[in-house]
Simulated scan of single mutants.
Amino acid sequence: MFYVSNIFQSAPQVFSSVLQEKTYQTLAKLKIAFSRVETDEAITMEDCVIINQKLEMEMVKTLFLCNRQQTKFYLFVTKGDKTFSSKDFSHALGIPRVSFAPEVLMEEMLGTKIGAATVFSALLDQDKQIKIVFDQAVLSQEWYGCSDGTTTGYMKVKTTQIIEDFLNDTNHQPLIIQV
């Protein structure tokens, strides 16, 4: 059975990555409230069903994409149950077709491994190499469910606070598309 802890409103006692620590430090600095759970390692959206039930929200799907030359990078946030189409994404932005970025770049640029891609990686993108792109459908959700930068920590935050407070603090202006 997939383990999901009780709900916490405070940061973990011990951090398992630099990104996870920066995430909770930034949320505290911005006074952004959250609810979080600790879990068994969750990699797929199917793993998130129990997490969604516990936190009473829907987890977003966060994809790390790049062009063929691996010179342009996109962090795409969409609804968890939505199928990704590279063609539709690229068309919406008016760019050549993209694909999933290699795992090594995900670890290097996002500070996460597969299954833990998160908007909080904007904290590590000091040079603004990554364009953060939101599916319009995510913005209609009251709650934003995502990884805390690990595959064993998940949280819910008000969607408006991610868009207006968090991304503003990181100096990332999100692109909003409909796909």
Rank of each mutant, 00 (worst) to 15 (best):
D135S: 10
D127E: 15
D127F: 12
L105G: 00
I132P: 03
T160P: 01
V4H: 02
S90T: 02
E41T: 14
T26C: 15
M106A: 13
T159R: 00
E164D: 13
Y154C: 07
D169L: 14
A42W: 05
E108G: 00
Y154L: 07
S35R: 10
Q173G: 00
A33H: 11
N67R: 07
M155H: 07
V49A: 01
Y24M: 14
F100A: 02
D81S: 14
T152S: 15
Q70M: 12
A122F: 11
K22D: 02
T71R: 10
E142V: 12
L63F: 09
C146H: 03
Q70G: 01
E21I: 13
I176P: 03
D125F: 15
I163L: 14
T78I: 03
G149D: 04
M109Q: 14
Q70W: 02
K156W: 04
L105A: 00
I95T: 09
F73L: 07
D165W: 12
T170W: 07
A116S: 13
L63D: 03
Q13W: 06
E164I: 12
L63M: 12
F34D: 03
S17G: 01
A137W: 01
V119R: 11
V157F: 11
N171T: 12
I51D: 01
Q13C: 10
A116G: 08
E58I: 12
K156L: 04
L175A: 07
I130D: 03
T78M: 10
D125R: 15
I176D: 02
V119N: 11
T118K: 07
T160Q: 15
R68Y: 06
T170D: 05
K113A: 11
Q25R: 12
A92N: 10
Q13L: 15
L63Y: 06
E56I: 09
C66Q: 03
V4Y: 00
S90L: 01
T170K: 08
E58L: 10
W143C: 05
I43L: 13
F134W: 02
T118D: 04
T112W: 01
W143H: 05
T44S: 14
H172D: 08
V14M: 12
W143M: 11
H172K: 14
D40P: 01
K61W: 06
I162Y: 05
L105I: 01
L30S: 08
S147M: 09
F15N: 09
Q136D: 12
E107C: 00
L93P: 05
T170A: 11
